[in-house]
């Protein structure tokens, strides 16, 4: 089984104040650390597990600047055989254009696959769209929110999709296909610095993204970045920790959940 799995490098923003610059032209990410997209980490792990069981190989693909090599080394350390970097000069905003470029890349380079994995969404822009558009462009069956793979056969898989409220649906899908992988599907293995160092010795192939731009026009345009509208917001409890905690307990008593 050959599995191509997409992996993206994203900024770590959870604890950061994000600043918009140039009157909405850009978001300043220059001081942020970067890491692998959480969802893609689960996708790489799932691909490696399948190949460990049934044989074949995993190819990790990242699209981005030279720095994205970092997530490829990581994927190789986890068990991917190859790492492909599709170099693009600037990030592509429109998920359609992004998927079209990936589709051209896969076709032009004859990348062999039985299954393509993406993550459910990118942590940064949360479009959740690349897998679905790519499937349509490659005319392949598609399923998103995959939270379990119960059976792997040479011509089909039986998978579970996650729906709302804890419900799942079991689906039979023919190969080749594209699946977007939901977080929590597995427990991704630990990757050590040593492992990554060793993975650096495996050659990663670099492709120039502009070779795959035929028909890749953007259909949506970011006008600008803005701060979200503010709601009324919380009443903030400030002061010394002691005082804050006393207030907290006071609120719990007032609400009648603690005596």
């Amino acid at each position: 089984m050959n599995i191509v799995t997409f992996t993206k490098r994203v900024p770590v923003t959870q604890e950061e104040e994000l600043r918009i610059t140039g009157d909405g032209a850009a978001v300043d990410l220059s001081k942020l650390p970067f890491k692998v997209n959480d969802w893609d980490n689960y996708a790489v792990e799932e691909a490696v597990r399948i190949v460990e069981k049934v044989g074949g190989s995993v190819t990790a693909v990242a699209m981005g600047d030279a720095e994205s090599d970092e997530v490829l080394r990581r994927a190789i350390a986890m068990g991917a055989k190859d790492g492909f970097l599709v170099r693009i000069a600037r990030a592509i905003q429109d998920p359609f254009a992004r998927a079209a470029l990936i589709s051209n890349f896969i076709k032009n380079e004859n990348v062999p696959f039985d299954v393509i994995f993406t993550g459910v969404q990118s942590e940064d822009d949360q479009f959740g769209s690349v897998g679905g558009i790519l499937a349509a462009l490659l005319k392949l069956p598609y399923s998103s929110m995959v939270i379990g793979i119960d059976k792997v056969e040479s011509d089909h898989m039986v998978i579970r999709r996650e729906l709302e409220g804890g419900l799942q649906e079991r689906v039979r899908i023919s190969l080749p296909c594209i699946l977007s992988i939901q977080s929590g599907i597995n427990e991704p293995r630990y990757v050590s610095i040593m492992g990554i160092r060793k993975a650096s010795k495996v050659e990663r192939k670099v492709f120039q993204g502009n070779a795959y731009e035929a028909g890749v026009g953007a259909m949506i345009d970011t006008v600008k970045w803005v701060y979200p509208p503010r709601k009324k917001g919380a009443m903030m409890l400030s002061g010394e920790l002691d005082e804050v905690c006393k207030n907290l307990v006071g609120i719990l008593k007032e609400k009648g959940v603690y005596q």
């Binding site: 994000l18 918009i20 026009g217 953007a218 949506i220 970011t222 006008v223 970045w225």
Partner: peptide, 15 residues
């Protein structure tokens, strides 16, 4: 929303 609601993107469809 971008970045879990820290930033919003304003979009126009050009196509």
């Amino acid at each position: 929303s971008y970045y879990s609601d820290k930033i919003f993107g304003e979009f126009k469809c050009t196509g």
